[in-house]
Design a protein around this nucleic acid. Structure first.
Length: 196
DNA sequence: AGCACGATTAACT
DNA sequence: GTTAATCGTGCTC
């Protein structure tokens, strides 16, 4: 079952933790490719200087200001796509970055999209997830709660609180403190598919 | 109109 | 550990 909009309309850090253990599903030519979310990061509002919304409302960030439950997909480093899910409420720009999933369905489909890499190297990073599931600009703004969309999230495993670890977000470069060190990255303890 | 840089990855040494 | 790849975005001139 597709998770409803009410699931996404919660505080971003809470959503980032709640997404762990959920199943990210992509429908490709009628076939399912899916994985359990094992690592996420929260990006929260215009005051979070690591969040793209620090620049305010622009063409790029517009999706983050829209409804919770939409996909915010952006391009970076000249070649990579990143998938986020919009959180909170309308007109408040925040989202959760999907950093890694554990492949569980359509592994061959994902390997075909990733140059036949071994399962352990298939989706253990945010750009790898997008490449494996063929997510690019065409998925930006897609509604994950709309029954017609080919991308959505389902409830799956229950992850006990004691198995959720947190730490600083990755790749923030010259982002100033305190944002650089905020422990807004979450992952499932001991899961081998968390990014390196 | 031009420019510096990025929520990364893979292939190097 | 280091670095090239590669281009959209937001900021400065």
């Amino acid at each position: 079952m597709r998770l409803p909009r009410s699931f996404y309309a919660q505080p971003t850090r809470r959503l980032a933790k709640a997404l762990l253990g959920c199943r990210l599903v992509r429908s490709l030519d009628g076939q399912r490719a899916a994985g359990v979310i094992v690592e996420t990061e929260a990006y929260i509002g215009e005051t979070d200087l690591a969040c793209h919304a620090r620049a305010g409302r622009t063409a790029r960030t517009e999706v983050m200001y829209s409804h919770p439950g939409l996909a915010y997909v952006y391009f970076t480093y000249g070649l990579h796509w990143m998938l986020n899910v919009v959180s909170e409420r309308d007109d408040y720009p925040a989202a959760v970055l999907i950093r890694a999933i554990e492949p569980v369905e359509g592994v061959a489909l994902m390997q075909a999209a990733r140059g036949q890499r071994p399962i352990g190297d298939l989706t253990n990073g945010p750009a790898k997830v997008c490449q494996a599931l063929r997510i690019d600009r065409a998925s930006n703004g897609v509604d994950l709660t709309d029954a017609r969309s080919s991308l959505w999230i389902e409830a799956d495993r229950t992850v006990p609180t004691r198995s959720i670890l947190s730490g600083p977000r990755i790749g923030l470069g010259s982002t100033p403190e305190p944002w650089l060190s905020r422990p807004w990255r979450y992952w499932i303890k001991d899961n081998p598919f968390v990014s390196k």
